[in-house]
Lab assay of single mutants.
Amino acid sequence: VQTVGQWLESIGLPQYENHLMANGFDNVQFMGSNVMEDQDLLEIGILNSGHRQRILQAIQLL
């Protein structure tokens, strides 16, 4: 089972590990259960829309 940090590294966005972990997104399986939306990522400080889309697309593959 991948950690959130390993998963972010695999999609090329390791800089957001602290954003996700500090806001309770600390379990890759949980994130894959379709609980995260674009607005959630924006609210936790991921401002780059391309990065948000990449995260959301990768979540669909979990």
Rank of each mutant, 00 (worst) to 15 (best):
V1S: 09
Q2S: 12
Q2N: 14
Q2Y: 12
T3P: 05
T3H: 05
T3M: 04
T3Q: 06
T3F: 02
T3W: 05
T3G: 08
T3I: 02
V4M: 08
V4L: 12
V4T: 06
V4A: 03
V4W: 04
G5V: 08
G5W: 04
G5Q: 10
G5N: 06
G5M: 08
G5S: 09
Q6Y: 05
Q6R: 08
Q6V: 05
W7P: 01
W7L: 09
W7N: 05
W7V: 05
W7E: 01
W7Q: 02
W7T: 02
L8C: 02
E9G: 08
E9D: 12
E9P: 02
S10W: 05
S10A: 10
S10L: 08
S10D: 09
S10Y: 06
S10F: 06
I11W: 01
I11M: 07
I11Q: 00
G12V: 01
G12L: 01
G12P: 03
L13Q: 01
L13Y: 01
L13D: 00
P14S: 09
P14F: 04
P14V: 06
P14Q: 08
P14G: 09
P14M: 05
Q15R: 02
Q15H: 04
Y16W: 03
Y16M: 02
Y16S: 03
E17K: 11
E17Q: 08
E17D: 05
N18R: 14
N18W: 10
N18E: 15
N18M: 12
N18I: 12
N18F: 11
N18D: 12
N18L: 09
N18T: 11
H19V: 15
L20V: 00
L20P: 01
M21C: 12
M21T: 13
A22N: 12
A22D: 12
N23A: 15
N23S: 11
N23R: 11
G24W: 04
G24Y: 05
G24F: 04
G24I: 02
F25W: 12
F25D: 03
F25R: 05
F25V: 09
F25P: 00
D26T: 14
D26P: 07
D26N: 12
N27F: 08
N27C: 10
N27Y: 06
V28Y: 06
V28I: 13
V28C: 07
V28G: 06
Q29M: 12
F30N: 15
F30G: 15
F30W: 09
F30D: 15
F30A: 15
F30M: 15
M31P: 07
G32C: 15
G32K: 15
S33N: 13
S33I: 10
S33F: 10
S33D: 15
S33Y: 10
S33T: 14
S33R: 14
S33K: 14
N34Y: 14
N34L: 14
V35G: 15
V35K: 14
V35L: 13
V35N: 12
M36V: 15
M36P: 13
M36G: 06
M36K: 14
M36H: 12
E37C: 13
E37H: 12
D38C: 04
D38R: 03
D38Q: 06
D38Y: 03
D38V: 03
Q39S: 13
Q39G: 11
Q39C: 10
Q39R: 14
Q39L: 08
D40Y: 07
D40L: 07
D40S: 09
D40R: 10
D40C: 08
D40V: 09
D40I: 08
D40E: 08
L41H: 03
L41M: 04
L41I: 00
L41P: 02
L41V: 01
L42N: 05
L42W: 08
L42V: 13
L42F: 10
L42K: 13
L42P: 02
L42A: 11
E43C: 08
E43F: 05
I44D: 02
I44V: 09
I44R: 04
I44T: 05
G45N: 04
G45Y: 03
G45Q: 02
G45D: 03
G45P: 01
I46M: 01
I46W: 01
I46L: 02
L47N: 12
L47Q: 15
N48Y: 05
N48V: 06
N48S: 07
N48A: 05
N48Q: 07
S49M: 11
S49F: 09
G50C: 10
H51C: 01
H51R: 02
H51N: 01
H51F: 00
R52T: 00
R52D: 01
R52N: 02
Q53Y: 09
Q53W: 08
Q53D: 09
R54A: 07
R54S: 06
I55N: 00
I55W: 02
I55G: 01
I55V: 05
L56W: 07
L56R: 07
L56K: 05
L56V: 07
Q57R: 11
Q57K: 13
Q57C: 08
Q57Y: 08
Q57W: 07
Q57L: 07
Q57H: 11
A58S: 11
A58I: 03
A58M: 05
I59D: 03
I59F: 12
I59L: 14
I59M: 13
Q60S: 10
Q60H: 12
L61W: 10
L61D: 14
L61I: 08
